[in-house]
Simulated assay, not measured.
Amino acid sequence: MSRIYLPSQGDEDWRRLLADPVKHWREGYSAMCLAKSWENASGLPSEIARLIVSIGPSPELLVALPEHKVPLPGSRRGDSQNDLFALIRAGDETVSVTIEGKVDEPFDQPLGMWLANASAGKLERLAFICDLLRLTQPLPGNIRYQLLHRTASAVIEARRFKTDAAAMIVHSFSPTRRWFDDYAAFVALFGAPARPDQLVCVHSESTPRLYLGWASGEIPSRTQSLVVTS
């Protein structure tokens, strides 16, 4: 996998990185909403900045990498392909952030389904994630596996870039906050409450500190112009 990244010229550059650039690129769906929201922002979308400010003042986007892959052990398809990975500066703190975009699409499979007839590789991967996130098995079968490996990605990259904190944020464009209950069940694993548009620190004593958050955004207008970067 190449470690060379090129500057974006607009949301169409995000499209070519998708696993299925035709099926996954549709108006009102998460991939397009996320791309337009972040491109239009020329930095951090306001709903993301409002969460990060709880870590430090004046949040600043340093770099954002769409469809960023983070290697995980125990599977032939060994990468967690995150919708967006960002390094953010907030005051004196640097934060490694994975962003999971959502509109009406669910968080993929619940853990009980994902573990059905699980291979040794899957069991190895889950053990690695639980150890990394300081979670004790067995986990409830209704927990969405996608949230587990997206959060693990944030911690892995925080250690790689030596940041002060890691965060996994669901960037939701659903007006009804669809699937928030699944997110709340995941946050509860850490003994913490989940609230929309708040960042909660679930591991304050660890290095890096770990945060989870839900940011409510609006579906970008079809006619909204995009900021083009050079």
Rank of each mutant, 00 (worst) to 15 (best):
V170Q: 04
R160L: 05
D181S: 13
R160W: 10
Y183H: 12
V200Q: 10
T176H: 11
S206A: 15
A184C: 08
A194L: 02
G217H: 04
A215L: 04
F173M: 02
F190G: 06
S204C: 09
F161I: 00
S206T: 15
L212R: 10
L199R: 11
L199S: 12
P208T: 12
A166L: 02
S225G: 13
F190Q: 05
Q198S: 13
F190A: 09
V187E: 14
D181Y: 11
A185N: 04
H171V: 06
V187I: 05
G217C: 06
G213W: 00
F161D: 08
A188Y: 05
L210P: 03
A215H: 07
F173V: 00
R177T: 14
A188C: 06
S172K: 01
R209V: 14
A165P: 14
K162M: 10
F161V: 05
C201W: 01
I169W: 08
P175K: 00
M168I: 09
S174T: 04
L210A: 13
V202W: 06
Q224P: 04
P193Y: 11
A165K: 08
P193W: 08
Y211L: 03
R222S: 13
A194R: 02
S204I: 05
S216D: 14
V202I: 08
Y211N: 13
V170C: 02
G217L: 05
L189F: 01
L199K: 07
Y211I: 09
G213F: 01
I219Q: 05
T223A: 12
P175G: 07
T207D: 15
A185K: 03
A184N: 11
R160T: 12
H203E: 12
R178S: 11
L199P: 01
G213C: 01
F186G: 02
P220N: 00
Y211V: 06
R178L: 06
L189A: 06
R195I: 11
T176M: 05
V170G: 00
R195D: 15
F173D: 00
L210I: 13
R178P: 03
R178D: 13
L199W: 07
A215E: 13
E205T: 14
F173H: 00
P220E: 07
I219E: 07
Q198I: 00
D164F: 03
A165H: 14
D181G: 13
R209T: 15
S225E: 15
E205K: 09
L189R: 02
L189V: 06
A194K: 03
E218K: 07
A167I: 05
P208H: 10
V200R: 09
A165R: 09
G213H: 02
G217M: 02
Q224V: 12
R209M: 11
S174N: 10
A192S: 15
D181R: 10
Q224F: 09
G191M: 01
R160E: 14
R159A: 03
I219M: 04
S225M: 11
P220K: 01
S221A: 07
